[in-house]
């Protein structure tokens, strides 16, 4: 069971990232819990400077840019 967190307050890219992650999880039939983190105090645990951020199993994998589907698939496969 994967825990996935999308860090972001509602900018265009944050919404887009969440959609992309949900699509990949659905398409691949992965067992995952996806959570959108909008609280600044929570999201700053990972010391990000730009949104969106993506956290997989408590590890920040990317922040400040929109990762490609291939990249996300790779992170979720690990």
């Amino acid at each position: 069971m994967l825990t996935i967190k999308v860090l972001g307050t509602g900018c265009a890219n944050c919404t887009r990232l969440e959609e992309r992650v949900r699509k990949i999880v659905n398409d691949r039939g992965l067992q995952a819990e996806i959570e959108k983190v909008t609280d600044y105090g929570q999201m700053m645990r990972w010391n990000i400077l730009r949104t969106p951020g993506l956290v997989v199993d408590d590890v920040l994998v990317v922040s400040g840019r929109m990762p490609s589907e291939d990249e996300i698939t790779n992170w979720l496969a690990k």
């Binding site: 307050t9 509602g10 600044y40 700053m44 010391n47 990000i48 400077l49 730009r50 400040g64």
Partner: peptide
């Protein structure tokens, strides 16, 4: 690169 939606994380960071 910076958009106003990142102003708060950036400020805190």
């Amino acid at each position: 690169p910076f958009c106003s939606c990142s102003a708060v994380p950036l400020f805190i960071g």
